[in-house]
Nucleic acid binder design. Structure first.
Lengths: 209, 209
DNA sequence: GCAAAAGTGTTGTCGGTACACCCATGC
DNA sequence: GCATGGGTGTACCGACAACACTTTTGC
């Protein structure tokens, strides 16, 4: 018979935010051997009564103190050797949170922090591969969905939205084409209000449709 | 502590073929309680040293005697109650085979057979939902990839290719637009040869690019 | 008045869709 | 010669990319 009894199932989370013009990924620093001191994606084992999505939500709450986020299942990684501590497959998820959200620390880890995706430290397990996959999917979804709503305040200017897109996609966009597109496709709606209290010309405030 | 020890991990396969103008799904009839006599997607537990993809390939070989097929991971289904016999999550896969391939029967099941997707019997577990998801993905992939190559002979006429698309998508296509598109996008290449031995005007033979 | 960001139009290209007739062959 | 499927072209439309100047405000 096979070693089914020792098969673990975990969720791993690629949690992104955008701040100061950078796309950042949340990493935790591990205490547990054999990866002590290594950075990794947050995550954990799934429990008896929950789906993988519920496990992901719970991990997010327990380990970082954050709730009410966008969450989506990505892919299941199952290389037998991916966890040096024993057989464990991982159902990878993508999560997005606004940068204002405060992280809570936990004594399960020796550290937690945001890293720009251009400067990730070496990661434990196969987490480098998982993170790369998550970035690819985030960029693809940005083009044809409204996932961006999970990274912005309820109202925002088109300039703010465009800078968000440019940050995630890593390239510059033409403002006239961008504005025409997001309005034509019905992604955003004009609230009629203006962004006040800043220097320079005030901008209209929009919200997601 | 949680019930991690009893967590099973399975793969389930949505195996499609096209024959006589119908898109068909391979189902097996279960012996095992509590689903005795019910039809279900083929699949099985994953073993110690293999990835989920390797498990899917092995199941395909063991249970239906088919090898060398297109295989793709779809999604992981994890509702705690999805298997009445005990906790088990399922990593769903999509597979495509040519209709000429012969199936081998196995004594693990009380039956095996192809069903048109428009007339599926009641299915065990959450397999109705999994099959619906697989059909959706297959249709989406057909539009922007060359997955169709896995359902046709190495060479084929554009008429054959168009009928395959119409069968899977469940709608009629305009032959002029279809031909222009598959050639413009570089999906197929003219072999210079002709389909002979049939009635009516001979058609050019193409192959995938 | 100047620095900075907001806001706005036109043109060309390309991909997609709608649509109908003649052609080559086997019987 | 006829039945059958093979093979072809044009015209319209909507989406997208390239491209630069004027407007509004705070200082």
């Amino acid at each position: 018979m096979t070693r089914q009894g020792v098969m673990g199932v975990a969720v791993d989370l690629s949690i992104f935010t955008v701040q100061e013009g950078r796309l950042e990924l949340l990493l935790i620093r591990m205490k547990r051997a054999p990866y002590t001191g290594r950075w990794a994606l947050p995550g954990g084992r799934i429990r008896g009564g929950e789906t993988v999505e519920q496990a992901a939500v719970r991990e997010l709450e327990e380990k970082a103190g954050i709730g009410d986020v966008y969450l989506e299942q990505l892919y299941t990684f199952s290389e037998p050797a991916r966890d040096a501590a024993g057989r464990c497959i991982s159902v990878a998820h993508l999560a997005l949170i606004r940068s204002e959200v405060q992280l809570r620390t936990t004594d399960k880890y020796s550290g937690i922090g945001w890293f720009p995706i251009t400067r990730l430290p070496p990661l434990a397990f196969d987490h480098k591969q998982i993170a790369a996959y998550a970035i690819k999917r985030l960029r693809a979804k940005l083009e044809w969905t409204d996932v961006a709503r999970n990274l912005l305040e309820p109202t925002f200017t088109l300039g703010e939205l465009q800078r968000l897109y440019e940050t995630i996609l890593g390239k510059e966009l033409d403002s006239r084409n961008f504005q025409r597109r997001v309005q034509a496709v019905g992604l955003v709606k004009d609230t009629g209000r203006m962004r006040t209290g800043q220097a320079y010309r005030p901008a209209r405030l929009f919200r997601f449709a």
